[in-house]
Deep mutational scan, measured.
Amino acid sequence: MQRVNMIMAESPGLITICLLGYLLSAECTVFLDHENANKILNRPKRYNSGKLEEFVQGNLERECMEEKCSFEEAREVFENTERTTEFWKQYVDGDQCESNPCLNGGSCKDDINSYECWCPFGFEGKNCELDVTCNIKNGRCEQFCKNSADNKVVCSCTEGYRLAENQKSCEPAVPFPCGRVSVSQTSKLTRAETVFPDVDYVNSTEAETILDNITQSTQSFNDFTRVVGGEDAKPGQFPWQVVLNGKVDAFCGGSIVNEKWIVTAAHCVETGVKITVVAGEHNIEETEHTEQKRNVIRIIPHHNYNAAINKYNHDIALLELDEPLVLNSYVTPICIADKEYTNIFLKFGSGYVSGWGRVFHKGRSALVLQYLRVPLVDRATCLRSTKFTIYNNMFCAGFHEGGRDSCQGDSGGPHVTEVEGTSFLTGIISWGEECAMKGKYGIYTKVSRYVNWIKEKTKLT
């Protein structure tokens, strides 16, 4: 034993070699072989497995989906700052455009905790909710729209109204504003409101030439003092309507412009014939205590009207009353817009006519005020429907199939267009061939041609 100890002390290297040989010859039971080890760690190889990531292109799944990435790591994937920024906006807080917040056709661009709407022409605001041009839906104005110097929408209202708090709607500024039905039992019968379409306001006024200088022999019209197929109006439903009495009662109609003036057809009036105007009328054979009678003290036909040349060209006249009318729910003026808007309103496509005229061709006159909704007829169809001249200051309205029309005794009465609950004068009943005849239409004086003249002559002093 002493000898062994001496050998170990003198030859430590020998001992180490012996131990190493023993270990190498022993069977290893701690580690699995290569094949079995792979069965336990069965993990798919990654895209760049075996390579240094710093030297390969980034992978979106590896960089940002398996674990949260930084902007720089995302930049490695896209290799483009702009594309990385677009991805980053949604990656950080989701897609803010998912709810489609942009209105009126706006395009949404996502941002971090926010979004941006790219608005089409005519709109602005956070969600493109603000109209900035009158060309689109009248700028959301209830009545009139004008573009300011910086191309912003400025709404306005006709006389007797003021802008509401929203700067879009119009509200009454006087007790009985024009064009409004205020009798409670008839307010439910107000005709369907007309909503502004998209309009090209630059070209809204037709490029028409008034044929002022045409000389033409007097034409022989049949029954051209021209509501057939209409309905009984309720008291106060058309408070701007008046009836004219002269040699015979209810020979023509008219509309209240203001307390002192009536507008009617020029062919209705004769110099030297006494005319009485009755406002607030409903049943011409009954006294309903809503009527107001006034005498006409002055007749002003349009300066281009000449019955000797043509009885229905420039067929418009103004009547001055001896005493002002007292405005109330049964006696209310009709609204008159400017030339541009009167023309736009007419193009809405349908209007209402009213009167006490004959209820059928050569038949009896109506006792109760009649009204009828009539569609506008395109000019080409209008011209083809008659052998008589249709001037540019006239328009056609009615039904091709016949059966409904204005008729004798309705002449001078109103053709009105309702705009968001307020009625505007767009025409004056003038003439036609018979009444409600198939293929024939009622012919009306186009008020847009005469609004400046009306307003100039009827100013209240």
Results as ranks from 00 to 15, higher is better:
Gln237Thr: 08
Pro324Val: 04
Arg83Lys: 09
Gly236His: 09
Ser430Asn: 10
Pro414His: 12
Lys45Tyr: 05
Glu456Met: 12
Glu401Asp: 14
His361Arg: 12
Trp453Cys: 00
Arg404Leu: 15
Ala164Asn: 08
Leu327Phe: 14
Leu383Lys: 12
Ser70Val: 09
Val248Leu: 12
Val153Cys: 03
Phe424Cys: 01
Gly94Val: 10
Leu41Ala: 15
Cys134Val: 02
Tyr22Ser: 10
Thr194Leu: 06
Ser187Leu: 11
Glu401Ala: 15
Lys234Ser: 12
Asp410Glu: 14
Cys102Leu: 00
Asn213Asp: 07
Cys128Ile: 02
Leu130Pro: 03
Ala37Leu: 02
Tyr391Lys: 14
Lys51Pro: 15
Cys145Phe: 00
Val202Ser: 13
Asn295Ala: 10
Tyr91Ile: 14
Cys134Ala: 02
Thr218Arg: 10
Asn393Ser: 14
Cys157Asn: 00
Thr264Met: 02
His400Phe: 10
Asn138Ile: 03
Val326Lys: 10
Trp88Pro: 15
Ala9Gln: 12
Ala149Arg: 09
Thr287Arg: 06
Gln370Trp: 03
Val181Ser: 10
Tyr444Cys: 03
Lys347Leu: 07
Cys117Asn: 00
Leu60Thr: 13
Arg3Ser: 10
Tyr161Thr: 00
Val447Gln: 00
Leu23Asn: 03
Leu32Asn: 15
Thr458Gln: 03
Ile284Gly: 08
Leu425Gly: 00
Gly439Val: 03
Cys117Arg: 01
Val77Gln: 15
Val296His: 00
Gln219Leu: 07
Gly50Arg: 15
Lys440Met: 05
Lys387Gly: 09
Leu367Cys: 08
Cys134Ser: 02
Asn127Lys: 05
Arg364Ile: 08
Thr342Ala: 06
Lys247Phe: 08
Ser406Glu: 15
Gln2Cys: 13
Gly58Phe: 05
Thr209Ala: 11
Ser99Glu: 07
Lys126Asn: 13
Val154His: 07
Ala436Thr: 14
Lys311Gln: 05
Arg162Cys: 04
Tyr47Arg: 06
Gly13His: 07
Asn343Gly: 10
Asn310Ala: 10
Cys97Gly: 01
Gly246Ile: 04
Gln241Met: 14
Ile112Asn: 07
Asn203Ser: 09
Asn59Gln: 10
Thr215Phe: 08
Ser423Gln: 08
Asp111Tyr: 07
Thr190Lys: 13
Arg364Asp: 13
Asn48Pro: 15
Val451Tyr: 05
Asn343Gln: 09
Cys407Ala: 04
Asn310Val: 03
Gly421Asp: 06
Ser148Ile: 06
Tyr22Gly: 05
Trp118Cys: 14
Asn59Glu: 04
Asp212Thr: 13
Leu318Cys: 03
Arg294His: 02
Gly246Phe: 04
Lys39Ser: 11
Val181Cys: 06
Gln90Ile: 13
Ile344Asp: 13
Gly50Ser: 07
His282Lys: 06
Lys68Glu: 04
Cys155Lys: 01
Ile443Thr: 07
Ala192Pro: 05
Glu193Val: 11
Phe251Pro: 06
Val227Asn: 08
Cys155His: 00
Thr332Cys: 06
Leu425Ala: 01
Ser182Asp: 07
Gly412Trp: 08
Gly179Pro: 01
Trp118Asp: 15
Gly230Ala: 14
Thr276Glu: 11
Trp240Thr: 01
His282Ala: 08
Asp338Gly: 08
Val154Leu: 10
Glu54Lys: 10
Gly254Glu: 00
Pro120Cys: 02
His267Met: 03
Lys459His: 12
Gly50Met: 15
Asp315Leu: 00
Ile284Asn: 08
Gly122Arg: 04
Ser448Val: 03
Phe224Met: 13
Ile40His: 15
Asn151Cys: 04
Asn42Phe: 06
Ser114Arg: 10
Trp240Lys: 01
Tyr161Trp: 10
Ser220Ile: 12
Arg83His: 15
Glu66Cys: 03
Arg191Gln: 08
Asn304Trp: 08
Phe251Ser: 09
His267Pro: 00
Ile443Trp: 13
Gly272Ile: 08
Thr264Ala: 05
Val30Cys: 05
Lys109Pro: 01
Arg404Met: 06
Ser350Thr: 13
Pro375Glu: 05
Ala233Trp: 08
Ser255Glu: 02
Leu321Gln: 01
Lys440Tyr: 07
Cys117Glu: 01
Ile136Trp: 08
Pro301Ser: 09
Thr276Trp: 07
Gly21Leu: 14
Phe121Thr: 15
Val153Phe: 04
Thr461Pro: 14
Lys339Ser: 15
His303Phe: 07
Thr81Ala: 08
Cys108Ala: 00
Tyr352Arg: 06
Tyr352Pro: 02
Gln185Ser: 12
Ser49Phe: 07
Ser49Leu: 09
Lys234Tyr: 14
Ile256Asp: 00
Ile262Ser: 00
Gly439Phe: 04
Ile334Trp: 01
Glu35Cys: 04
Gly254Asp: 00
Arg83Val: 13
Leu24Trp: 09
Arg83Met: 07
Arg191Cys: 05
Met8Val: 07
Val228Ala: 14
Lys137Thr: 04
Val277Glu: 00
Cys128Val: 00
Leu20Pro: 03
Arg43Ala: 14
Gln408Tyr: 09
Asp315Cys: 01
Ala9His: 13
Tyr330Glu: 04
Gly427Ser: 00
Ser11Asp: 04
Val242Phe: 00
Cys178Asp: 01
Asn343Trp: 03
Asn138Ala: 04
Gly398Ala: 05
Leu32Phe: 10
Leu14Ile: 12
Phe123Thr: 05
Pro172Ser: 08
Gly355His: 13
Phe221Met: 09
Arg43Thr: 15
Cys69Pro: 04
Ser204Ala: 05
Ile390Tyr: 12
Gly21Gln: 05
